[in-house]
Simulated scan of single mutants.
Amino acid sequence: MACEGNGMSDARIGEALIKEVIVEELRDMSSKDSQLLTSLAVEPETEQKTEQEQKIVNQLGKMVRIIGDRFGEDKEFQDAIDGVACSSSSKWDCFKQVANKVFEQGITWERIAVLFYVAGKLAVKMVEAHLPQSVRDILKWTVDFFRSNLLGWIGDHGGWINSFSELAVASVQSVSSLSSHSYGLVLIFVTGLALGSVITWRLTTRL
C-alpha cells in the first residue's frame, strides 16, 4: 500500500526530497553566500508536509547522499553533469537525456536516489557558474520528471516507505571500501533509519 493510504503523500515526499537534496548540496558549498543563494534559488513550499513525511524526507535525504557520493569520482557521471551545465542548447533537453540514461535499464529505488543526487550536483554547478537563478529550473525539471516518470512506479511499489530496505543496502554498498569499523558504523546507521521508518509507518497506520 502506498504512502497515501497511511495519510502520507508520495508526491509531497518526493518533491520535498528533491528540494532537500538540492538545498543540502548548496549548503556544502564553501561560498559565504551559499545560504543566501539557497534561499533565493529554491522556491518555498506550496503544500505543507506532515510530521511523518518530514521524518521520512530527512531519513531518505541522508541515504540519497550516501549513495550519490559513490558516483562523485566517476568520470562519466561528472561529464554528464558538466554536459548539462555547459551546454549551449536546451538544458532541459540535456537534463532529460541524463535522466533517461539513469533509468535506461529500468527504474529502481537506487536509481531514483541517483537522479535526485544529480539534481543537487547540477544545482551546485549552476551556482558556481554564477547562475543561481537556474537552480529553480533544475528543481522544476526534476520535479516534472519525477511526476511524469517515477511517481506512478513508486505508488505501484508500495510508496516511499518501501524504499528504505533497498536504499539501506545500497548505502552500505556505497561505503564498502571503508574500514571495517566505519563500515559497521554505517551499517548500524542505515539499519536504524530503516527500522525508524517502519516504526513511523506502523504508528501512522494506527492513526
Rank of each mutant, 00 (worst) to 15 (best):
S179V: 04
I199H: 06
G159I: 04
G159Q: 09
Q97T: 06
K121S: 05
Q133T: 13
E20I: 00
E47S: 14
Q105S: 12
M63E: 15
Q48M: 13
F116C: 06
E110P: 02
S31F: 15
K140Q: 14
I66P: 04
G14A: 10
G184I: 03
T205C: 10
S30C: 05
I161H: 11
V135W: 07
K125Q: 15
L195R: 06
F103V: 01
C86T: 14
E110S: 05
D28Y: 11
E25Y: 07
K121T: 01
C3S: 13
L203T: 06
V186Q: 02
K49R: 11
G14I: 04
M126I: 03
S89Y: 01
F95D: 02
N100F: 06
S134R: 10
K121H: 05
L36P: 00
H157I: 02
V186S: 03
Q78V: 15
S89K: 04
F164D: 06
Q105L: 03
M8C: 15
L150R: 01
M8L: 15
Q173T: 10
D156T: 09
F145H: 13
L150W: 01
S39G: 06
S34E: 13
E51H: 10
D74R: 08
L185A: 04
L37P: 00
H157V: 02
N6S: 15
P44D: 12
W201R: 11
R65L: 04
V124M: 03
V57E: 03
D74A: 05
D137I: 01
L185D: 03
I18K: 05
Y183Q: 14
L40S: 09
V135P: 09
E104W: 08
E15M: 13
F146A: 02
L37N: 13
R206Y: 09
S88A: 14
W160E: 07
L40P: 02
D79F: 08
T50L: 14
I67S: 04
Q133W: 14
V64A: 07
I199A: 11
I188L: 11
D93A: 10
T191R: 11
R111H: 06
A113E: 11
S148E: 15
L115A: 02
V64S: 06
W153R: 01
V42F: 02
P132H: 10
Q173N: 15
V84Y: 03
E47A: 15
T205A: 13
Y117Q: 09
E51L: 15
F164M: 15
G5H: 14
E25F: 02
Q133S: 12
R111F: 00
Q52V: 10
T205M: 11
F71T: 12
D82A: 10
A129Y: 04
N6Y: 15
I138R: 00
H130C: 00
C3K: 03
L203Y: 09
G61I: 00
L60H: 07
F77N: 07
S39Y: 10
